[in-house]
């Protein structure tokens, strides 16, 4: 069994009103010095078998086809 973590974040330059609101809320809680906050998504995915190279290729295809909208988002794949 291969375990992987996929992280999807907004591309640089894409406005992130949710991240901005979270940043404001952190400042409101008294955390001084919070600069930019960008929010994103994390997927923990289990894949059967032990072919790590094939799993990584599959995971990238999953990102391109569904997990990320590459018009506005970047992704990274990490095998754990």
């Amino acid at each position: 069994m291969i375990k992987a973590r996929v992280t999807v974040t907004l591309k640089n330059g894409v406005l992130d009103p949710q991240g901005k609101a979270i940043g404001h809320a952190l400042s409101g809680l008294g955390f001084d010095g919070v600069g930019s906050v960008r929010q994103g998504k994390v997927f923990d995915i289990e894949i059967e078998g032990d072919d790590r190279a094939a799993a990584e290729a599959d995971l990238k295809a999953m990102c391109d086809k569904l997990l990320a909208n590459t018009v506005i988002e970047d992704y990274s794949v990490t095998l754990i």
Partner: peptide, 11 residues
């Protein structure tokens, strides 16, 4: 169609 639809700026 091109582009994307994101969360409203007002949230």
């Amino acid at each position: 169609l091109p582009g994307a639809l994101m969360r409203n700026a007002s949230l």
